[in-house]
Design a protein around this nucleic acid. Structure first.
Length: 356
DNA sequence: GAGACGTGGAC
DNA sequence: TGTCCAAGTCT
């Protein structure tokens, strides 16, 4: 006889809130569907979780739809050319995710017969799957009682318990709190409910505490100010770097592109020739560093903000014959949409094409 | 464990 | 306008 599982009162209250107020999302199986026996597709859960890392739901939706249309199963993704995956990911950012996405799909296809492993520990050993994603996929797709903690959960927990220790030092203690709250029944819905609560009620600014199922017990609300949580270490200011980009356009309507190294910033993505991103913010760039001599014309400066520095990219343009080059290729302008061009490179090309 | 790693939207 | 950020992972 199995003892009836007890669950924390917080879990029951949150699940009741979730049943009424959950968001409908393309990768999600809602509570009514789950009640009818519909299960979440591990491939959909994993794909969405990786895309959602540090990325908004709004930004992810069209990419999620595109990936499923191109590669309906994880084995399809494993068989896809890496370049096609990078091109499809272009614009979403954090491109190591796309490189690891492909590696992970290959590992699942090759080592696990095209089925995702079902435990948190096994999932975490796969490329691009860390603490959060392993727990999320295990809980949501496989009903494992895994403690899922992301930025939303950190915010909810830090407020509920009024945790004054700053992040990231407070993470282990918060993870223990989440583990204690996570129920054996519906652990996946519990995780998604915590994240929905953080995204729609317990927001970073101006939280809607009046609508919160935890308003009566929340220590930050009762004793302090929820907006003061979570406490975080002070940020460092962003250095400015400078570089030059060279957009060469041929009379045949093609531009010179090349591929960046596999690792590091924008790793494996396509670019127009650019100089090294120097840390000196002052000092003009010049066409001397261009891939070949041409009548380079300044076409303005693109400002692009990365996570850890701001780039001032001086753009030069020239109309030139299609010089054969060891490094790079000439791509028709009409095909640019199919390239793995990150946003900063699209901005540079756009600047070069528009008449000043 | 601190830094590297994108982007576009909100206030 | 500048700041903060959005379902983190890897080294």
């Amino acid at each position: 006889m199995i003892a009836k599982t007890t669950q924390p009162p917080e879990a029951a209250r949150l699940l009741a809130w979730y049943d009424r107020h959950h968001r409908d999302l393309p990768w999600r199986v809602s509570p009514p569907m789950r009640a009818r026996g519909i299960k979440a597709d591990p491939y959909h859960v994993w794909l969405s979780e990786v895309m959602l890392q540090q990325t908004t739901v709004t930004a992810v939706k069209p990419y999620f739809a595109k990936f499923l249309a191109l590669w309906p199963t994880v084995s399809d993704l494993a068989a896809a050319p890496t370049e096609a995956v990078m091109a499809a990911w272009a614009g979403l950012g954090y491109y190591a995710r796309a490189r690891n996405l492909k590696k992970c799909a290959e590992a699942v296809d090759r080592d696990h017969g095209g089925r995702f492993p079902e435990t948190e520990a096994a999932l975490k050993s796969l490329p691009g799957i860390g603490d959060y994603t392993a727990a999320a996929v295990a809980a949501i797709a496989f009903d494992e009682q895994a403690a899922v903690m992301d930025g939303n959960v950190e915010r909810v927990i830090s407020r509920y318990y009024a945790i004054s220790e700053p992040l990231p030092g407070s993470k282990p203690a918060m993870k223990a709190k989440v583990a204690a709250l996570t129920p054996a029944e519906r652990p996946g819905d519990f995780a998604q409910a915590m994240m929905d609560l953080g995204a729609t009620i317990c927001t970073p600014k101006r939280p809607a505490c009046a609508l919160c199922p935890f308003r009566a017990e929340c220590r930050a609300l009762g004793e302090s100010d929820p907006e003061l949580f979570p406490v975080k270490a002070a940020k460092k200011d962003k250095p400015v770097r400078r570089a030059a980009a060279f957009v060469a356009c041929s009379p045949q309507g093609r531009i010179l592109l090349r591929r960046r190294p596999e690792t590091g910033l924008l790793g494996g993505m396509t670019e127009v020739p650019v100089t090294h991103f120097t840390s000196r913010r002052d000092g003009e760039t010049s066409p001397d560093a261009a891939p070949f001599p041409a009548a380079w014309q300044p076409r303005g400066t693109v400002i692009h903000v990365f996570t850890h520095f701001e780039l001032r990219l001086d753009v030069y343009g020239a109309e030139t014959p299609e010089t054969p080059l060891a490094d790079g290729w000439w791509e028709p302008l009409a095909n640019l949409d199919a390239q793995a061009l990150p946003s900063v490179m699209k901005k540079a090309i756009e600047a070069a094409m528009s008449r000043v």
